[in-house]
């Protein structure tokens, strides 16, 4: 099995699907000759030609409209938004158009579009290059939102996203792109969208998280272990739809939970997970479900982001609070 970084696994997934289905098209700003600003599409234009992998003019709404139109004519578009902070420019195409295509046509049309985009902080970017805006997508009915945390998941989830007949927003945490390697099979495989992964089993407290916070949570679980607290870590992998069964099964077992997100606290995924736990498992709870989040400010200037972004210590503190409640 090959050792790959997450970005190599992402490229590999696109290569697989470009080979697998001639209707798959990969496009966006700088994705052609340049291979993308992060090199996610490295070599793909050379391998599959300009008809399949191509640059677009620099306009996000245009890219979204192009994807919708190509989807209507039978293609399977994989479009890149260069940084997810630019999503505001293409929000109409995503939320008001793709997400409603199936509904608006009473099931006649669909938008089989995959929207890939780097997001997340910790890499010292200029403004609007690091935001965690998945909550905006989560609030939009009609789209799925996928956030991988490992190279293995990145490949399997992206292949599933591309094959999905509904629009999927696939968010790639920039800090995870090259920070570590993992085993990735060279052959194709899929990971079902909407299925969480229990990264570490435990019996005292459930840590429910996704994206880069999976790694901070695993580190926290190790520290907690030293103090005799057994933490279960759940990587949601898909935040819309949630894998409610895995979340509830874990909470029923541990009776205690925290939700960890890199995004701001207000109206986040964490808030929704807490609400779902209250709806479904409140009698199993030994303590309130707490959240570890960033504060409700705009994503900070680069030099303050290390403090702003939650880390494993914040997670340990909250987990202990819940454990000792």
């Amino acid at each position: 099995m090959a050792q790959m970084t997450m970005i190599q696994a992402i490229t590999d997934a696109m290569r697989n699907e470009l080979k697998n289905n001639e209707n798959v098209l990969v496009f966006g700003e700088d994705v052609g000759q340049n291979g993308g600003v992060f090199r996610a599409t490295e070599g793909l234009q050379k391998e599959f030609g300009e008809d399949r992998v191509f640059d677009t003019p620099l306009a996000e709404s245009g890219i979204g409209g192009l994807a919708i139109g190509l989807g209507l004519t039978g293609f399977r578009p994989v479009m890149e938004i260069q940084f997810f902070g630019f999503v505001f420019e293409v929000f109409d195409s995503i939320a008001a158009q793709m997400a409603r295509m199936r509904y608006r046509s009473g099931g006649v049309y669909n938008s089989p579009v995959t929207i890939r985009s780097p997001f997340g902080g910790g890499v010292k970017t200029p403004e609007l290059h690091a935001d965690s805006l998945e909550g905006l997508m989560y609030q939009t009915p009609g789209i799925k939102v996928v956030i991988p945390s490992t190279p293995y998941d990145a490949k399997g989830l992206l292949i599933s996203a591309i094959r999905d007949n509904d629009p999927v927003v696939y968010l790639e945490h920039m800090k995870l792109y090259r920070s570590f390697r993992g085993e990735v099979p060279e052959e194709e495989y899929t990971i079902e969208l909407g299925k969480a992964d229990v990264k570490r089993e435990g019996k005292d407290v459930s840590i429910i998280t996704y994206g880069a916070m999976v790694h901070a949570s695993l580190k926290a679980a190790e520290e907690l272990e030293k103090e005799g607290i057994s933490a279960e870590v759940i990587d949601l992998r898909t935040i819309s739809p949630l894998d409610i069964d895995t979340i509830i099964a874990s909470v029923e077992k541990t009776g205690r939970a925290i939700v960890v997100q890199e995004a701001q606290k207000q109206a986040g995924i964490g808030a929704f997970v807490v609400a779902e736990i209250n709806d479904r498992a409140i009698l199993n709870l030994e303590a309130p479900v707490l959240r570890v989040t960033a504060p409700d400010t705009v994503f900070p200037y680069a030099s303050a982001e290390d403090v702003w972004i939650p880390d494993h210590r914040d997670i340990v503190d909250k987990a202990k609070k819940v454990y000792h409640f």
């Binding site: 008809d51 245009g62 979204g64 139109g69 209507l72 004519t73 195409s93």
Partner: peptide, 14 residues
């Protein structure tokens, strides 16, 4: 209008 560019491009590709 942006969608029409996409449909028109799709027809051309085909």
């Amino acid at each position: 209008i942006v969608q029409a560019a996409g449909v028109g491009f799709g027809l051309k590709k085909q």
